[in-house]
Design a protein around this nucleic acid. Structure first.
Lengths: 168, 168
DNA sequence: CGTGAAACATTAGCGGC
DNA sequence: GCCGCTAATGTTTCACG
């Protein structure tokens, strides 16, 4: 995790790149009152330290036919064992782990967290419409052997949505 | 909303930029077997159509002292009126609207959706630790006059997290 | 930290399929 | 219509002061 010291200029650079990830180094330099080379050195340092994890383009879901955003709470079976082939002494494939691996392969699921509380997992799911959603539920999520039950809610309105973290 | 036609090449470009938003146009062109100029024309078209909404740098929350991720379900008071100054006939400031505006000004809240189901809003909240979280609850969220009650869950583990949408 | 120069990237105009 | 060439302009990057 290696915390790293960030001074005021570093934070300003992060703030800028969190909003405009394609700004040229020159432009960033100008906005933080630095010349290009020290600015680039700082950005490189932030990238290497993993503070900047990635640069990405954000795509509008509505524009590519993914108009429905759902959050799905999932509860898994407790303590169930995988039927059949399990060598004694070897670590069992737990339902939890199984589920986590499956989630990685479902494109509709863009985020999944193990959570505190009564529900084990929270999934963020992008689909085209209710039809698509129910297909995903019936054919994929509810068919997974580790899943005990689910509770879904749908986004009616996006009040706020940003990838930019507050820079304390 | 203006749907736009995306051919195979456009989708490939989006896929690439969703993973690496700082790739040079030349590199993108190479990967989609196009020369730089038609590739740039396509990217510009995607930007102008709003399919690509923004380019951003993703910052690792752990590295900047925001180690705790919470999802907070919020229920608002129904039908309450703002006390005092309201001209009859003018649209009242609804608690809903009031809340939406406030959320915009709280840096800890990076996302907020109006949801179906028993809870009105779902907030995604990044904070440093439980202390920070409870300060946010006591001093900000629970003090808001529109808020009736809240239910919080905390992320124990990030199983999957991507900003890249599946390109159907 | 800043300067400067070489290598590299972007972008508009134009001709071709 | 959409592609690719060329050439001018702008940007990145690094050795060095």
């Amino acid at each position: 995790m290696s915390k790293i010291e960030l001074d005021k200029t570093d934070r300003k650079i992060l703030e800028i790149l969190q909003t405009d990830g394609r700004l040229s180094n020159q432009d960033v330099a100008e906005r933080v009152n630095l010349s290009p080379s020290p600015c680039l050195r700082r950005i490189k340092r932030l990238e290497e330290a993993g503070v900047i994890r990635q640069y990405v383009a954000l795509v509008d879901p509505d524009k590519i036919g993914l108009g429905l955003l759902a959050y799905v709470n999932v509860r898994l079976e407790k303590h169930s064992e995988v039927a059949g082939s399990r060598a004694p002494g070897l670590p069992a494939t737990s339902p939890r782990n199984d589920f986590a691996v499956s989630v990685g392969s479902w494109p509709e699921v863009v985020a999944c967290y193990a959570m505190t509380g009564e529900m084990d997992f929270l999934l963020r799911v992008h689909v085209g419409d209710m039809d698509h959603f129910s297909r995903f539920m019936m054919n994929t999520l509810l068919r997974h052997p580790a899943v005990l039950d689910v509770k879904s809610s749908f986004a009616l309105q996006r009040i706020k949505e940003t990838t930019a973290l507050p820079l304390v």
